[in-house]
Each structure stands twice: as structure tokens, then as C-alpha cells.
């Protein structure tokens, strides 16, 4: 695996050792030390994944995240301080796919990055190549979604989440099941990942995201796709 990662982190020690650790794990790593430089490097490199510190000088990490999301569906993992629960939610709402709390050990970070890079469909499970959900036409091989013929840009996480639900319309998935299947968390994942991602998918595919007709909340249980 030689996926290319852009690491945006202002602390030189953390930046350097993280880059060393990621390279040792087989990634190609480029770095930037502040938000503005990070955005510039991203445009220049078009990396496979962005690893983004939330607290950055010059341009806030969350702002960088929003800027990237305006143009791209590249996987973004944010680095947040433990206990700063607001950072997590705001970061996810800004479009991050996942987050890792500081301090982190390298194996933990590598695992999250791999999960964010991995396409769910590339695993052992083979599903139909084309799915439909209401007016949505989902091409699982080409990883595209069209609503009435018009393509909708979904991030990797958003796409996997949609496919997971759309594959079994009417079946209720608990947040833990979705955390396992889409994010690769098998123990105590953060349910907010699911809730925020569902919100983001709805904002893109539903006509009225406040009154969803395709991705439904099952009170007390989780989510399901409309039959």
C-alpha cells in the first residue's frame, strides 16, 4: 500500500514523529505546518487522505476541512484533543470522516487511517453492482450515486453508509452495527460518527433533509433505508 497522506500539524515533534510512524507503516507522507499551507499542499498534491490537526495557526483545521469538502470527497481524519467533545462534533459536521484523539499511539492511528482509506466494497463481501433507493441509482462498482440522473458527490464514508443501508431496505441497523461495518470500530465506537454522517448524507440525497424519506431514524434503535 502506498497511499499518499497529507499531514497538517503545527507541533514540529508531533509532525515529524507521526510522519516517521506513518512511513514505517507503508504510507507516503507529505506535511504542512499550518492551515493555509495545508490547503495549498492539498491542492498541489491531491493526496489519498488528509490527516488534520484541529488547532492550527493561520487557518483553523475545521476551516481547512470545510474548504477541502467544497471541492473534494477525499477521506479526512481529524486529530482532536481528548475531552474536547465539541471539536469532534464540529469536525464531523465540517466533513471529517473520522477522528483520532491526542495523544495517540501509532498502531491506533494507522488503524484509523487504513479504515478510512479502505473501501468497504473491496472486502470479502460481494453485493449487487447496482442498487436503487427511491429516486437514487447507486452504482456500487463505480461508487457513484445519481438522483434523477444527476450525480451526487458523496465521501467514501457517506457512500459506504448509504450502500450499507440501501442494500437491505427496511432492515434496522443499530449505530454499533454501522460503526463496525462502515468505520471498522468493533468496540465502543462513537455513535456521533453515525449520527453526523447520516445527517450529511441526508443533506445531499433527501429533498427535505429535515423530513427524510429515504434514510429513516428508528427511534431507540438506529437507522434504516425506506422500503
Amino acid at each position: 500500500m502506498d497511499a499518499r497522506i497529507l499531514l497538517v500539524e503545527d507541533d514540529p515533534s508531533i509532525r515529524e514523529v507521526t510522519a516517521i510512524g506513518l512511513r514505517a507503516a507503508g504510507f507516503e507522507v507529505e506535511t504542512a505546518s499550518d492551515g493555509a499551507a495545508g490547503l495549498e499542499r492539498w491542492r498541489e498534491l491531491q493526496p489519498d487522505l488528509v490527516l488534520l490537526d484541529v488547532m492550527l495557526p493561520r487557518l483553523d483545521g475545521l476551516e481547512v476541512c470545510r474548504e477541502i469538502r467544497r471541492e473534494s470527497t477525499v477521506p479526512i481524519v481529524i486529530l482532536t484533543a481528548r475531552g474536547d467533545t465539541i471539536d469532534v462534533v464540529v469536525g464531523l459536521e465540517a466533513g471529517a470522516d473520522d477522528y483520532v484523539r491526542k495523544p495517540f499511539e501509532m498502531p491506533e492511528l494507522v488503524a484509523r487511517i487504513r479504515a478510512a482509506l479502505r473501501s468497504r466494497r473491496s472486502g470479502t463481501e460481494a453485493g449487487p453492482a447496482a442498487l436503487s433507493l427511491g429516486p437514487l441509482a447507486i452504482d456500487t462498482a463505480g461508487r457513484t450515486v445519481r438522483r434523477d440522473g444527476e450525480e451526487i458527490a458523496l465521501t467514501r464514508t457517506e457512500f459506504d453508509l448509504l450502500v450499507e443501508l440501501a442494500q437491505r431496505p427496511g432492515q434496522v441497523f443499530s449505530r454499533d452495527q454501522l460503526l463496525d461495518r462502515v468505520w471498522g470500530y468493533d468496540y465502543l465506537g462513537d455513535s456521533r460518527l453515525v449520527d453526523v454522517a447520516i445527517g450529511r448524507v441526508r443533506a445531499k440525497v433527501e429533498l427535505d433533509p429535515a423530513n427524510p424519506e429515504l434514510l429513516l431514524t428508528v427511534r431507540g434503535s438506529g437507522y434504516k433505508a425506506a422500503r
Binding site: 437491505r168 434496522v172 443499530s174 434503535s221 438506529g222
Partner: peptide, 14 residues
């Protein structure tokens, strides 16, 4: 959450 409403008749696994 535990809930009898978890089942949707289609084999919910919660």
C-alpha cells in the same frame, strides 16, 4: 437502547 420497537419485521439484528 433496548427496545421492542427495534424489530421492523425484517429481521432486525439489534
Amino acid at each position: 437502547t433496548l427496545g421492542p420497537d427495534a424489530a421492523d419485521g425484517s429481521g432486525a439484528e439489534t
